[in-house]
């Protein structure tokens, strides 16, 4: 009796499947629940990886519900890579379809924000430009300049107040969220990713910069999207967050 890895794996991820034959306890008896040690290790270690990756989702749905959710997730979307830092990338779409969670419309976007924070944490390092470098540019030069943005930058747009929801669940005494669309950008001024809400037009501005537009063109896009677009506010934010890493003509 041989046990191949296809058989072993099937029985691991399906708690209702029969345990494979051909395994014993070292004394000639069938292995029985000894096989469940592996089942348990797989389920527990992957659930823990999701708990680490989605602390706010876990808080929002509660620990017991999160375990159920994780148990369904890890069977539908087992990791495709040995890098646990990437595990959970399908969580937003999963939450949009997982019946018990579907009612909570903002969960997928909160999960997107948590993924963005995790990606930012592991992103490549980059040396930011100094505020003086930016100030040295004439308005004309700035308008014509394009910029390279830090690899740790992430942008998450949502019709839900995802930044407020996120902050309310991680910061003691944070204001409770009010219904509003929120665009969040995540950057890593030092070693910790920091999410910040963007003023209106900010997301369009950054999106344009990311696609290589000059400041002038990005400003046009932002002003099209929002009459109230305030360039100095967004520029200050990008500098403070050390998001601008190279500025050129």
């Amino acid at each position: 009796m041989t046990v191949d890895q296809t058989t072993f794996r099937k029985a691991l991820l399906d708690p209702d499947a029969a345990r494979p034959d051909g395994l014993n306890d070292g004394r000639g008896q069938p292995a029985g629940r000894r096989f469940d040690v592996y089942r348990n290790n797989v389920a527990v270690s992957l659930t823990e990886a999701l708990e680490v990756g989605f602390p706010v989702i876990r808080k929002l749905v509660g620990q017991d519900n999160f375990k159920l959710l994780a148990s369904a997730y890890l069977r539908l979307h087992p990791p495709r890579s040995p890098l646990m830092m990437h595990f959970g990338a399908d969580m937003p779409s999963f939450l949009a379809e997982f019946e018990p969670a579907r009612q909570i419309g903002y969960l997928p976007d909160v999960a997107r924000l948590e993924l963005a924070i995790r990606e930012s944490y592991h992103a490549a390092d980059a040396e930011p430009i100094s505020p003086a470098e930016l100030e040295a540019l004439s308005p004309e030069a700035l308008t014509g300049a394009s910029v390279r943005l830090a690899p740790s930058l992430r942008l998450v747009r949502s019709p839900w107040p995802i930044f407020s929801i996120w902050r309310f669940n991680v910061e003691e005494g944070a204001q409770s969220p009010k219904m509003a669309a929120e665009d969040v950008f995540v950057s890593r001024p030092n070693l910790d990713p920091v999410p910040r809400p963007l003023p209106s037009g900010g997301a369009e501005f950054i999106t344009a910069l990311l696609t290589g537009a000059t400041f002038g063109d990005a400003m046009d896009k932002a002003s099209e999207a929002s009459r109230n677009f305030d360039l100095p506010v967004v520029l200050t934010l990008l500098v403070e967050m050390k998001t601008l890493i190279e500025i050129g003509g």
Binding site: Q5, F8, R9, L12, Y38, V42, P78, P79, P82
Partner: peptide
């Protein structure tokens, strides 16, 4: 040990004969 099969990574050190 093994931990990957059919492109799924199982995050445990699994036994082999």
């Amino acid at each position: 040990a093994w931990s990957t099969h059919d492109s799924a990574f199982l995050n445990d050190l699994l036994p082999l004969p």
